[in-house]
Computed example of a mutant assay.
Amino acid sequence: MSALNIKKGSTSHSAYNLRDTHSDVVERHTLAVIVANEAGVLARVIGLFSGRGYNIDSLTVAEVDHTGHRSRITVVTSGTPSVIEQIKAQLGRIVPVHEVHDLTTEGQSVERELALFKVAGKGDKRVEALRLADIFRANVVDSTLESFIFEVTGTSEKIDAFAELMRPLGLTELARTGVAALSRGAEAV
Rank of each mutant, 00 (worst) to 15 (best):
V83K: 06
Q108H: 04
V64L: 10
A181S: 15
L169M: 07
G178L: 02
D142K: 13
F136Y: 12
F148V: 01
S109R: 09
T77I: 05
V45E: 01
P81G: 03
V97M: 01
H22C: 13
S23Y: 07
I73W: 00
L59R: 13
S183T: 11
R176A: 01
A181P: 06
A133Y: 00
R28L: 14
K122P: 06
A36F: 08
S50A: 07
A39E: 04
T30M: 02
D102E: 09
D24H: 13
F148N: 04
R176G: 02
T144C: 12
L114P: 02
V33Y: 01
V25L: 11
S156Y: 05
R176H: 13
G185K: 08
R176W: 10
T105F: 05
L132I: 09
G9W: 09
L59D: 01
V83W: 04
R167N: 05
K7H: 12
I34R: 08
L171V: 12
V179G: 11
S71D: 02
E187D: 10
M1G: 02
N37E: 09
V61M: 07
S58M: 15
V100N: 00
V41E: 03
F162Q: 04
R126C: 06
G47I: 09
V33H: 02
K158E: 14
D124E: 15
I56N: 08
T21E: 15
Q86T: 11
T153F: 02
I94E: 02
L169I: 01
T77N: 01
S50F: 01
L130P: 12
M1V: 11
K8E: 14
G123H: 10
L171F: 05
K158N: 04
D142V: 03
A133C: 03
T104L: 03
H13K: 14
V140L: 02
E157V: 13
S143W: 15
G92N: 09
S14I: 13
L59M: 14
E63C: 11
I94M: 08
G79D: 01
A129G: 00
F49R: 00
S82N: 07
G185I: 01
G170Y: 00
V41G: 03
N5P: 03
V95A: 06
D65E: 09
V189M: 10
E106G: 13
V97C: 05
S147P: 14
S143G: 15
L59A: 10
G79A: 07
N37H: 01
K122N: 12
N55L: 14
M1A: 15
G185T: 00
I149R: 08
A129K: 03
S12N: 10
R28D: 04
V26A: 15
T177Y: 00
D20T: 13
V189I: 10
A36W: 11
D160M: 08
K118A: 02
G51A: 01
A163D: 07
Q86C: 12
G40A: 10
Q108A: 08
F49M: 02
H29F: 07
H22R: 15
T11F: 11
E63P: 14
H69N: 04
V97D: 12
E111C: 14
F148S: 00
T60R: 13
H29A: 05
D142Q: 12
I6K: 15
T172R: 07
N139F: 10
S82P: 11
R176E: 11
L31W: 06
R72Q: 09
V119I: 10
H29N: 12
V35C: 07
K122M: 08
D20I: 12
A161P: 10
E151A: 03
Q108V: 13
